[in-house]
Nucleic acid binder design. Sequence first.
DNA 1: CTGAAAGCGCTAACAC
DNA 2: GTGTTAGCGCTTTCAG
Lengths: 365, 365
Amino acid sequence: MTRVVGRGGSPAAPRSADVAQLAGVSRKTVSRVLNNEPYVSDDVRRRVIEAAEELGYRLNNAARTLASGRTCSIGVVALGTAGYGTASLLVAIEKAVRGSGYALRVVNTLDGEPDDIAAAVDSLLEQGVDGIIVSEPIVEGEVPVRVDVPVLFLGAPPAFGGSRAVTAGVGADLLARAATDHLLELGHQTVHHLAGPLRWYAARDRVEGWRTALAARGRHQPPLLEGDWSAASGYLAGRELAADPEVTAVFVSGDDMAIGLIHALTEAGRRVPHDVSVIGFDGNPVFAYVTPPLTTVRQPFDAAAREGLKRLIHAIEEPDTEGPSSSDLPVELVVRASTAPPPTSSSAGPRASSSRSHSSQRSSA
Amino acid sequence: MTRVVGRGGSPAAPRSADVAQLAGVSRKTVSRVLNNEPYVSDDVRRRVIEAAEELGYRLNNAARTLASGRTCSIGVVALGTAGYGTASLLVAIEKAVRGSGYALRVVNTLDGEPDDIAAAVDSLLEQGVDGIIVSEPIVEGEVPVRVDVPVLFLGAPPAFGGSRAVTAGVGADLLARAATDHLLELGHQTVHHLAGPLRWYAARDRVEGWRTALAARGRHQPPLLEGDWSAASGYLAGRELAADPEVTAVFVSGDDMAIGLIHALTEAGRRVPHDVSVIGFDGNPVFAYVTPPLTTVRQPFDAAAREGLKRLIHAIEEPDTEGPSSSDLPVELVVRASTAPPPTSSSAGPRASSSRSHSSQRSSA
DNA sequence: CTGAAAGCGCTAACAC
DNA sequence: GTGTTAGCGCTTTCAG
C-alpha cells in the first residue's frame, strides 16, 4: 500500500476513511465508534478500534469541531501571577477538568484590566471554547465583549454577570470569618485586617467576612489596611501596625503578606504571638516551618474548582434546566504558633509557647 | 464590575461570507484582510475591517485550522504542582507565548509517569497543536508516543526519540555552581547538598553543578540527600544533617526545602548562619522576610521561557534551517542572611550579623 | 444496526 | 489586486 509522505518525511496522518477501509466499514460507522454512540455491534466496534490502533489514528479535532459545532474545550482566563493562591486554583481547575471530556485553554491576563480581560475572552472565543472560566475576577467596569457561551466566575459573588453566568468560590467570607473568630475566641478585643488589593473580589470577600465576625460580637472595627499580596507590602503594613500599641491581633489576607508583616513586627520588637497574634490566609504548607509557624486558613481550591466546573458544564450541556445546588465548602483552620491569647495588660501574662506544632489543625463544616 | 455582556437568544454567528457581502467583496478578500496578506488595497482593507466590526464577526478557528493545516497553537505539558518554581515557569511560558500569534493549550500531568506524559501529549495532539512544550520533564523510560510536531523540552536534555526535539533551560547547573561557589568562597571546606527528587532533570542538573563546583576546587564530596521539594522533606533532611557536626554549609535545591531544613537545624540548636550556612534555590521573594532571610539563587524563568519558545517557533516555522544559537542566561545570586563564613574551630569566630538585608543581590553573566 | 450524501467555515490554488 | 473553484476531515441528516 502506497502511503503519501507528508512534509518532513512523516507519512500523512491517517484519516477516518483509512480506518473505515481497513475495518471494512463506512466512515460513519467509524465515527459512531469513536463517539461511543450506541447501535454498533460489538464485533464491528472491536474491528474499528483495532484498525484505528494499527494505523495510529488520531481524531482531527478541528474537523470534528467544524462539523459538530462543539469544541469540547473550556477556556480559562487567569491572572498572570505565580502566587500560591492563584497558582493553586489554576492547578485545581486543571485537575477538575481532567476526565470531564473537555480540554483546557488558558489565557493569562496580566493586570486584570477590563480591556485585558476582554481581549483574553475574545481570543478564547476565537479559538473556540464551549465555556469560559474567569478565575479570581477583579472588580472593574464592564468587560466590553459579547459572549455567547456560559461563563463561570470563580471567586466572585453570586448574582453577577450576564445571562449565562454561573458562579462558585472558595467561600472566602466564611473562611475570613473563621479566621477572625479564632482570634476573638483567643480573647482579643478586636482584630485588625490587612486586605489584598480591593480591586479583587477575593480581597473584598475576606474583608466582608472579617467585618461580619467583628459585628457579630459588637466589636470595634479598626481601619482597614490594603496590601498587594506581596510579602513586601505586608512588611510595610507591619511597620505601621507595630507603632500602634493597641494592636494585638491581625488577620492578614494572604500568607505571604502575613510573613512580611510578622517580620516587621518582630523587627520593631513586638513578639509574635506573645505581643501580637497574626493569622494568614491560603494554607501554603511551607509556612509551617518558619518561625513562628504561621496559623492560617486553608482555601479549598479543589472543592471550589470541582463545584464550579460542575455548574459550568451543566450550563453548557443543559442550558435550560436549573443548575446543581451549591454545597458548603470545608473551612479548615490550621492552627500553628503565630496566634495566642492577648498579653495581659499587666504585661505579666502567660507566655505562649512558640511551639513546634507544625500543623495541628482543626476543621469544621 | 467585571461584567461580560452577553446575548441570550444568540442569532447565528456571522461568517466570512456575511462580512464579504456587507463589504461588497469576495470571501477570499476577506480572508486576505484577516490574515494580513498583502495585495489588498487600503480602501478594501478598511471596508472589510469595518464590516467585520459592525457584524461582530469572529474568525472560526476550527475552520481555519481544517483548511490550512496549521492550528496556531502550542501545547504545554506541565507538572501538576503549585510550587513556586513550576508555577512561575508556567506563567513565564504564558507570557512568552502572548503576542507570538500562538494560543496556549495546557495539560497537567500529575505525577509525570511516562504513560501520563504520553496521554497528555496525545490529548494535545488530538486537540491540534503546532508544537509542544514539556515543562520540567522527569527522567524515566521512553515516552510511548509518536509525535510529528516539534517538541521543546524546557529544562532537560532531549528524551523523546523524536527527531524534532529542541531544548532550553534555566541553566540550572550554572546556577547550582554559583550557589556552591558562594559557600566555598565564604570559606567553607565543603558543601552538603539536599537535592530534589532525582527523577527530575531539574534536580539532576543542580546536583551536577554542585559536583562541578566541588570538583573544581578539589573538595571532598559529601553524600547526597534527596527530598521531594516540600518543606517537610527539607525538615527531615535537616534533622539528619543537624546530627553531623562536620556540616557547616548546605546547598538546598529549592527554597521550600531550605526553609524546612533551617527549621530542623534551628530546632536542634544549630544556628543559621552562625553554625551552618544554608542557600536555597528559586528566588521566591517571600523568603526575604523570614528569619533568617534566605540566601538563594534566582531562576531566570522569563528568559528561559522566551528562549525556548523562540527555538520552538523556529522549529515549527522553518524546520529545515538551523535554530537560533543559545544565549547565556543570567545567574543571579541573591545574598541575604542565611549564609556566612564558617564558625572558627575555636568557636570564638566572628559572629555573622543576622542582618536585615532583604535583598542585597549581585548578579553576573 | 449500517451506509450515502451533504455540508460545517475557511483557505489554497489558480484564474482573471 | 481580486474572484473562482475545490476541498480540509469530520458529523449530520436521512435512507436502507
